[in-house]
Amino acid sequence: MATIAIARQEGGRRRARLAQRIRANTSAITGGVILLLVLAGALAAPVLYPGDPLDMVAAPFIWPGTDRAHVLGTDMLGRDIAAGILHGARVSLVIGLVATLVSIVIGVTLGALSGFYGGRVDAVLMRITELVQTIPPFLFALAIVAILQPSIPSIVVAIGLTAWPSLARLVRAEVLKIRHRDFVQASISLGVPHWRIIVLDILPNTLAPVIVSASILVASAILTESSLAFLGLGDPNVASWGGMVGAGREVLRTDWYVATLPGLAIVAAVLGLNLLGDGLNDILDPQR
């Protein structure tokens, strides 16, 4: 009973220290608030604008603030910009999160296997990783989307297949540090299956850097999706921040708000993710 009480007290102290670190980290709080606002806008989109955001709902080129029904104005086709931004947030967040999940599955799996087994397995997997890294990620994604035809699934696959190498190298380095620790060697000597050692003993100790990297990967995925949509390779059936910026560039000199407002949405989402990633790096760093 005394041991359980001590363990509970230690767990409580750890949680208190973690909460104190979070409260003291301005970067993490600011990034979290920005992301919550973006998420709230995405969730509110079907309620505030239940129709198709690609529908023409008013006269073209209504400037922001001049019509209460269209607070952010309309574009050259009479589409509501506020509706496009909020619905575009849903698309960007879904693509960013799912593509990052694909990258994490590939990167963590290859990095863990490479670091745990070493030898030929490590050599082969790292050569594959280096081969993928030699190809510019955006051009690789561009080629994949062009081949598969622009759609949300093809964009997710393209981003997921191009963003994992850096994560794989990070996980490999972490596994190499943990691989020779006593608790891992004890499990190996007891005949515990390797997959159990990797999943239950090693990977939980690599969560901190993976979580930090995941926030950066989501930001990169949003930027990549926006860039593809800007070039006309986004899903034509959904509203997209990049697609709105791409359409607005034609009237940038006369009606700058058409491209600027969705561009600011991209900046806000990416800034929030980067600030959150920096904050998490400080909070989860055991050296601090």
Rank of each mutant, 00 (worst) to 15 (best):
S189I: 13
I29L: 15
L261E: 06
A7V: 04
P286N: 11
L233F: 12
A82M: 14
N237W: 04
G119K: 11
I198Q: 05
L261C: 07
I106L: 11
K177L: 10
M1E: 05
L161K: 03
A59C: 03
V47T: 13
L86N: 06
Q9Y: 02
L275W: 04
D285Y: 08
A5R: 11
L131P: 00
S215M: 12
S92H: 02
A5V: 01
S215H: 08
G242M: 14
S213V: 05
A2C: 00
G84T: 04
G119N: 09
S220N: 15
D235W: 06
G191P: 03
F183V: 11
L280I: 08
T129P: 01
A16L: 07
D75G: 03
G191M: 09
I283W: 04
R68E: 11
V238S: 09
A42F: 03
P286E: 14
P53A: 13
R14P: 00
L276V: 14
A7I: 12
V98I: 15
L228Y: 06
D182A: 15
G118I: 06
A89W: 01
A141L: 02
R249I: 10
Q20S: 14
A40D: 02
V71H: 06
L86I: 04
I159M: 05
I147K: 10
A24D: 13
L176R: 13
G111K: 08
M126Q: 12
L18N: 07
V156T: 15
L125W: 01
P46G: 11
I106W: 05
V91H: 03
V102Y: 02
A158R: 03
D52V: 12
L35E: 04
D255Q: 13
Q20V: 01
P60E: 14
V251S: 00
R79C: 05
F183A: 11
R169P: 00
G65Y: 02
I29A: 10
I6Y: 04
S151Q: 02
T224Y: 06
V98E: 09
L54G: 09
A83I: 06
L200V: 13
G32V: 10
I144W: 01
M244W: 01
M244R: 08
E130N: 08
Y117M: 03
V105M: 08
L110V: 11
F183M: 11
P193G: 10
I266E: 11
P60I: 12
Y257M: 09
